[in-house]
Write a protein that binds this DNA or RNA. Structure first.
Length: 541
RNA sequence: GCGGGUGUAGUUCAAUGGUAGAACAUCAGCUUCCCAAGCUGAAUACGAGGGUUCGAUUCCCUUCACCCGCUCCA
């Protein structure tokens, strides 16, 4: 049975993850990677970078891909021009005013609670509800009747206003009957919840110099779209990948590192012709899922969840989440590792013309969202971000497929998946519980450990020699302390896939044993061949 | 942000209004020729701040963090 407590305790004990600033009591939502954790996370990011970007062969048609395509990388800053976040939509979206209900203890977005004025015998109250527009009138009537303790036959004595209003349009919330309340005036003053970390440019900066730490890496790619086009000779279809830190001031960080306030993303923005975008969407969705299974996430713990049509942004043909059955979630529930979103031309056009209106009805062309003065609410850059196909001479704004993965969530999922308790006999033949981190060899923080079987007879000297050689090629650990069985177990907990042991025979015939973490099998290999043997096994698996 | 629970060594747990104990892990030494063996020794803890008290790890308050439920979740 995998329990989160055991995984968290092992992560701390063995140096995978620590709470940030722990000696001062910790800070909610921030986590540090220890000596083993940093290697694991680096390996995951490098596997991603290699498999998606650096190792991509644009000359070869990839399995399942509609055509050949190119991939390049990018590394943008965390702080960008404030206008970036206004045009991206994050400023409006992450800048919520929230109200709390003192009675029901629920919290609502100030601009989302709506309702109508209701009057009965000179008493006027505002009945608020979260019901759908169609059911709103009925819901307001029902709750209004209940509030005034009216029977059905008196229904017509209740006067209901014609206009549906959101509560941010009211002068005060004094007369509001909150959606889950039975008494009036239970809502607090609206409070600002800024999900973006605010900071100030310049030492003397005032409010005008306020900007934000990026809440996602994607926007850096969009605003550099033209730079990449002009400098790298890439042609549509192509993708730009980036790995980097992002920041969100989550209200409730929870579940170990799953919802952290500082986290690392591995994102691709893939640009393609609008006519081919749904094919590319399917390609990336399937390819990204396969990537996780290949690195060892069990397919029965992993699901692809396609968003329902109602959940989709109006511009999107599809969005799918790759989700993992984390042990801290209830049975049957999954947590998001990666989202693959079809984003249409929303981002490039917003940075070009000004933020588009996300509430445009489906099927209509999106137009720039206007402010109260009739001018664009957030002005775009005015730069031309269209693409011209040199062969057909066609000009278009590419559509975007965005596979956006969380590196820390990936690490957490692989840690959870790897955590295994099995039974192995000790030297007396009694079964003992063995904790093994069955990490994929590519991800394992330490690839090999070298031991002299005993600390005498020249074995340590030979072992140290081998260690020095292996360490040049991959992360290797040397240990000569205590019984060899104990050393094996220590490496099992760290997830080290291979242990190399120097014994008496090694001194004669220049061979050593290699022991496999998962099968416990051992075989002999010439000392000169050890490095190649292990490299092969890391890469072929 | 609300309600409930929990904070003691690296980890998992004890005990106590008056010197805080164990197991495992760690370190040193001996032993040890393949899966947490044994022996000897060592180091290490009451989340933080305040109050009550002669004296607080223990009681009270505040705060921080973690867990569970609600809420939130681009």
């Amino acid at each position: 049975m995998k329990s989160m407590e055991k995984i968290v305790s092992l992560a701390k004990r063995r140096g995978f993850l620590f709470q940030s600033s722990e000696i001062y009591g910790g800070v909610q939502g921030f986590w540090d990677y220890g000596p083993l954790g940093v290697e694991l996370k680096r390996n995951l990011k490098e596997a991603w970078w290699h498999d998606m970007i650096a190792g991509h062969n644009e000359l070869k048609l990839q399995e399942g891909a509609p055509s050949q395509f190119e991939m390049v990388g990018l590394d943008c800053t965390i702080i960008m021009h404030p206008q970036v976040w206004k045009c991206s939509g994050h400023y409006d979206l992450f800048h919520d005013h929230m109200v709390d209900c003192r009675e029901s203890k629920k919290r609502y977005r100030f601009d989302q609670v709506r309702g109508r004025w209701v009057e009965y015998q000179d008493k006027k109250i505002f009945v608020a509800t979260l019901a759908d527009i169609e059911q709103e009138l009925e819901e307001v009537r029902r709750r209004g009747m209940k509030f005034f303790k009216l029977r059905n036959k008196d229904a017509d004595k209740l006067a209901i206003g014609d206009e549906s209003l959101t509560i941010d349009r009211l002068d005060s919330t004094q007369s509001v009957l909150a959606p889950d309340a039975k008494t009036l005036d239970t809502l607090t003053e609206p409070r600002e919840f800024n999900l973006m970390f605010k900071t100030t440019l310049g030492a003397l900066g005032g409010e005008d110099d306020a900007t934000f730490l990026r809440p996602e890496t994607a926007q850096g790619i969009f605003v550099n779209f033209k730079n990449v086009l002009d400098s790298s000779r890439v042609k549509v279809p192509f993708g730009i990948g980036q790995v980097g830190k992002s920041f969100r001031n989550e209200i409730t960080p929870r579940n170990f590192t799953f919802r952290s306030r500082e986290f690392e993303q591995m994102e691709i923005e893939f640009f393609c012709h609008p006519d081919h975008s749904s094919q590319w969407y399917r390609y990336w969705r399937d390819r990204r899922l396969a990537w996780y299974t290949k690195l060892g996430l069990a397919s029965d713990s992993l699901i692809m969840r396609e968003h329902h049509v109602e959940e989709l942004a109006h511009y999107s043909i599809g969005t799918a989440d790759i989700e993992y059955a984390f042990p801290f979630l209830p049975e049957g529930e999954y947590g998001e590792l990666e989202g693959i979103a079809h984003r249409g031309d929303f981002d490039l056009r917003s940075h070009m013309e000004g933020k588009l209106d996300p509430n445009t009805p489906k099927g209509q062309r999106m137009e720039v969202e206007l402010g109260e003065n009739g001018k664009p609410k957030h002005r775009g850059s005015g730069k031309d971000l269209t693409y011209r196909d040199e062969l057909t001479n066609e000009k278009f704004v590419p559509h975007v497929i965005e596979p956006s993965a969380g590196a820390d969530r990936g690490v957490l999922a692989f840690l959870c998946e790897a955590f295994t308790e099995d039974e192995a006999p000790d030297d007396k033949g009694n079964l003992q519980t063995r904790t093994v981190m069955k990490l994929h060899p590519r991800l394992a923080p330490v690839k090999a450990a070298v031991f002299p079987l005993v600390k005498k007879d020249g074995m340590p000297e030979v072992a140290k020699e081998i260690y020095g050689e292996l360490k040049q090629k991959f992360t290797t650990f040397y240990d000569e302390k205590g019984a060899v069985g104990r050393r094996y177990r220590r490496q099992d907990e760290a997830g080290t896939p291979f242990c190399i042991t120097v014994d008496t025979d090694s001194l004669q015939d220049k061979t050593v044993t290699i022991r496999d973490r998962d099968t416990l099998e051992q075989w002999r290999v010439k000392i000169d061949d050890v490095a190649d043997e292990i490299s092969d096994r890391i890469n072929q698996s």
